Amino acid sequence: MSEKKEKRRKKHREKLLERQKEASLVRKIVFVCLFLIILTVAGVGYGSYQYIMNAIGPVDESDDTDIEVSIPIGSTTTRIGEILEENGLISNASIFRYYVRFKNESNFQAGDYSLSRNMDMDDIILELKEGMVYQDYQISFTIPEGRWLERVIELAEENTNLSEEDILEVITDEEYLEELIERYEILEEVILTEEIRYPLEGYLFPARYDFVEEEITVEQLIETMINRTSSVLIDNGAAGSQYTYHEILTLASIIEGEARNDEERYRISGVIKNRLDRGMPLQMDPTVAYAHGEHLSRTTYDHLEIESPYNTYHVTGIPIGPINNPGEASIRAALLPEDHFYLYFYHSPNGDVYFTETLAEHEAVVGQYQ
């Protein structure tokens, strides 16, 4: 073998060894980087876990000093959390709100409480649920989910000192409505036109309402209901939605009108999202009834012909406004639609609901009953 060839081979081996060393170094660097990333993620995860565990635990296990707090009537979980944090009984009001929602806790009682910093969050929640109301209610009534504003007014008249005429006069007063729109962020897209039947439809939250006074004003009643709607929207993360508050309540009202249980709510919400994404009309029967201003036992083809900004067979996209006053479950479903490919659903006369992906499948289901 010539000396020249031997030199070339030696040089080639040296380059190969150099490349192997470089590859080994790169592997080590990658391994170290991956290891550091894993450590960082684990550290952040562990830190977050520890932070949450500390937040739901006692603020100070050694401090059993009684702290007097007062929970006003009508307080939301957001407000209760703020009161507890302000008094040093919990470290984070937001975690309290999410923890309560995670555990599906409710029925907190208004009243005066003696609590301490050595109580954990579960102990405090238990106290708030078992406490005694500090005042007797003079007015107490419940608005069921999904009622039209007319029915809400009737229930208010039946259970308070207010008359239907008094309430209607106030909620149709354009000057008062403009004042509310200025004050409440959730009302900023409310439209004051003749096309809107009632601008506050959808904003009068269905719930139990308690008042210690023997007599209340229309404004007090309306604003208490709007405050409740605002709290529910905020507590459920509506501020981060792709939709406006007005659109969320409109979609929730349609879901409320269509769904018969919680499982259906999320699935129907998914159908609505799929239709909106494809630019299809929603074609929801409850919007037709609202457009006609009467509850229909059965929607006919003649009913579908009405030209109304509420009629989703007539307009494409989200209609002009809510068609009832939806509850929290439907609001949550509007914000968290189920992920699927269904574009149609049909409620059969025997109570079953059928979800389908194509028009042919839908027509086949309908054909079995009609």
Rank of each mutant, 00 (worst) to 15 (best):
S253G: 08
V41Q: 00
R267W: 00
R147E: 15
G237P: 08
T76F: 04
T299N: 02
I216A: 06
L16Y: 11
G279F: 05
R183T: 13
D66A: 15
M53A: 14
E130L: 15
T300R: 10
A259W: 04
E61S: 13
L249V: 06
E215Q: 10
G279E: 07
A239K: 14
N104T: 11
I153W: 03
V100H: 01
T358K: 07
T250Y: 07
I124D: 09
M284Q: 10
H246Y: 08
G131H: 04
F205T: 06
S297A: 14
D66E: 15
Y346P: 05
P144R: 00
V365L: 01
S94R: 12
G279S: 07
L336V: 13
E61K: 12
Y243P: 03
E105N: 11
Y209F: 07
Q109P: 05
G57Q: 06
I73E: 15
M121N: 05
G321F: 03
T77G: 09
R9A: 13
F31C: 10
E61H: 00
E201W: 00
H340G: 09
R151I: 14
L221N: 02
A252E: 01
M284G: 06
V44F: 12
I52R: 02
H340N: 12
E219W: 04
Q220S: 11
E165N: 14
E215R: 04
H295N: 12
A289R: 02
Y313W: 03
L25D: 11
R19V: 11
A291N: 04
I234H: 06
M53C: 14
E182A: 12
E3V: 00
Y245S: 03
I153V: 11
Y344P: 08
P322Q: 02
E363K: 14
H347N: 12
E185N: 09
D210K: 05
M284F: 03
L336E: 15
I80P: 01
Y313T: 01
V69T: 02
C33H: 11
Y301M: 14
A156F: 01
N227G: 06
E127L: 03
Y209K: 07
M119Q: 15
N261A: 05
K273L: 10
L336C: 12
T142E: 10
V32Q: 10
P319E: 02
E223V: 01
M225G: 03
I268F: 02
G317D: 08
N104F: 10
T160A: 09
D120R: 07
D120A: 00
V170I: 12
I255E: 04
V366K: 12
Q138S: 13
P319A: 01
Y203A: 06
D285F: 06
E305I: 06
V365H: 00
I254W: 02
D262H: 00
L192E: 05
Q368S: 06
Y290T: 05
V288T: 08
P326C: 10
Y203E: 08
T65R: 09
A364C: 01
T78W: 11
V152P: 09
I331N: 06
N104M: 13
L304W: 07
Q368Y: 05
R79V: 12
I318E: 05
D122K: 12
L187G: 07
E264C: 02
F31Y: 11
A364F: 09
A364E: 15
I71R: 04
L126W: 14
Q138R: 10
L343S: 01
E178W: 03
R260E: 13
E165H: 08
M225T: 00
E189D: 15
V44A: 12
P58L: 00
P326S: 09
F96P: 08
T229K: 04
D173E: 07
P206F: 05
V100T: 09
I216E: 10
